[in-house]
Design a protein around this nucleic acid. Structure first.
Lengths: 337, 337
DNA sequence: CTGAAAGCGCTAACAC
DNA sequence: GTGTTAGCGCTTTCAG
């Protein structure tokens, strides 16, 4: 291929100085209309596009965002997708970095090392990883977290777990369930805490106090969900536990698998509700009662906050968390007692 | 934060020339061991990491790969994830760009414009988009395609649709099914073509010729799958069509939804097989007979080919397509006639 | 084997 | 308003 054409070529072609071309490209300072026109023509004629790498080196702006999460979780994949679509409007690029359970601080810093990003989108598996929080607070570019309360990180997009979990539990209590198991991930993350808080409050409203043993915590995986279900199984078979609310879709798969193995069916043998409304959730038979959250809105909010933090840092005071509403959708996976 | 420390700082700290530091960083040419040691110590002491942007500007190497696909499809999200994990080993970054159905050529070129990538991973919805193929062949960096036969693009990672579809159809024929519907996406992509070829060959082996009308093409969406199912419905209810093989997971969701609406159950009313073995596929009741492909291997192969094309372009002659084997897994969604 | 210097393509400060 | 120039941080000749 022929050599990439540069700003110099444009300047020569238009018979102007290189600086003037730069000004036109950046729309900065006033350039005389005739110059402007001439330069635009040359840009067009030569098919010039500025080299972002060179621009970045000069300006310390990279138009590039790093996305850290566990993409195995389809929800994060969707959020990544929506964020990318949104970022594109602003001319930004999204670079993926998958993180698992372990060695996250290292993974993040080695990913960031040497590379240049203007901002970060992040969701990590625990909030109380001190080493990680330490290294996170040393990062000097804006970070937007997803559903996490991290010390020093104020820009966050949260899902309103509280309202819908409360609504769901109240719904179950109204159906006559008294012992509802709550299955969630690590206690050290916001969704679990909020879920538990909502759970307790819902019981309170019904003038009851839930059995602490009904609150089960594990990891965001189907294996963990299945393990928890198996723990619960004796009490389910005894008829003590009659409903389960799962705060996480991946754990929910494990619960379903466990039910299958134990030859239990919903809603006959147990009522169930889960978070996240994927296409398949509706295909399960009977269709599932779920808590749904709008992924597209989450992506949009993330990007909005992030771009603002990057491009208008002076207004950073005003940047706080955004809470995305959820929706409780009743279908056919719960039955009255 | 304090100013980023640069190669100059290291040179000064070590009392050497800037070029020597560079040589040490790149492991290039021989530098005397004592120098090397001193410089490494300074790098360590100052916590220096080279600025990739500056390196890129100089070397025209960016350590960055662009990924174009429709991430709505969980399969592509998984492939993106696996590719990223693999690329990381080589120090490369993955930038996402979601593409939909329309205006793809523009999307790709505007994404690439000005930015610098060393390679591209790509899967597009049709193979016969001339404008797109034209613009693709003008790209002067290595491109690895996923399951597409594109003119001029020889580096590809393919899934062996043929063998498993053939196996699956033979399985159905052996169960006594004679009229098996084949549901796939656009005819202008390799998976569909290969699926159809396998389908016909399987019939041939049984000394039969399939009814062309049983081959249905649509788009990779559940809506399209449902529409096709509804087309098929009369013949299913008549008992003419007794089995369906879906080449695509998203279309399959639509088929399931259609079955639900029509109050049909598998395997009783119809036998079904689909591509892609997700966790939920096993949770459907009864569990589904599926064709499975190893996503991790696909990611690895993509990256292997891509890195080789980038870093050892002289061996490009040898770089051809890799075919990833598939596996036909029999569970309980088909019954004998 | 090593230091000095040119230059990747661009922006911004500086003159005119 | 506009051209010239320094320099972002790095690699790579070029001398020595």
């Amino acid at each position: 291929m022929s050599r990439k054409i540069t700003i110099k070529d444009v300047a020569k072609h238009a018979g102007v100085g290189i600086g003037t071309v730069s000004r036109v490209i950046n729309g900065s300072n006033s350039v005389s209309p005739k110059m402007k026109k001439k330069i635009f023509e040359s840009i067009e004629a030569l098919g010039y596009t500025p080299n972002y790498v060179a621009q970045s080196l000069r300006t310390h702006k990279y138009k590039n965002i790093a996305f850290f999460a566990d993409i195995s979780n389809p929800i994060f994949a969707q959020i990544a997708k929506e964020s990318q679509i949104e970022l594109e409007q602003f001319g930004y690029t999204l670079s993926l970095c998958n993180i698992g359970e372990k060695d996250i601080a290292n993974k993040i810093s080695s990913f960031l090392e040497g590379r240049r990003f203007d901002g970060i989108i992040l969701s990590i598996p625990k909030e109380d990883d001190e080493e990680l929080n330490e290294s996170l607070s040393n990062i000097d570019i804006p970070i937007v977290t997803i559903n996490r309360d991290l010390p020093n990180l104020t820009a966050k997009v949260l899902t309103d777990y509280y309202s819908s979990v409360k609504e769901a539990i109240i719904y179950l209590l109204s159906l006559g369930h008294t012992n509802i198991a709550l299955v969630g991930g690590n206690k050290e993350i916001r969704p679990t805490r909020e879920g538990i808080r909502a759970y307790k409050d819902a019981y309170l409203i019904h003038n009851r106090v839930p059995n602490q043993a009904l609150i089960k915590n594990g990891k965001f995986s189907s294996e963990s969900g299945e393990t928890i279900f198996m723990d619960l199984l004796p009490d389910i078979q005894k008829g003590y536990i009659t409903a389960i609310l799962s705060l996480n879709n991946q754990m929910f798969y494990g619960i379903l698998r466990g039910m299958r193995k134990a030859k239990l069916q919903y809603p006959k043998d147990i009522s169930i509700i889960t978070f996240e409304d994927s296409e398949l959730m509706q295909l399960l038979d009977p269709p599932l009662t779920v808590i749904h959250r709008p992924i597209k809105d989450i992506g949009k909010s993330i990007v909005k906050i992030l771009i603002k933090s990057i491009e208008e840092p002076e207004q950073i005071e005003e940047i706080e968390s955004v809470v995305i509403p959820t929706e409780f959708i009743i279908r056919d996976s719960c039955r009255p007692i």
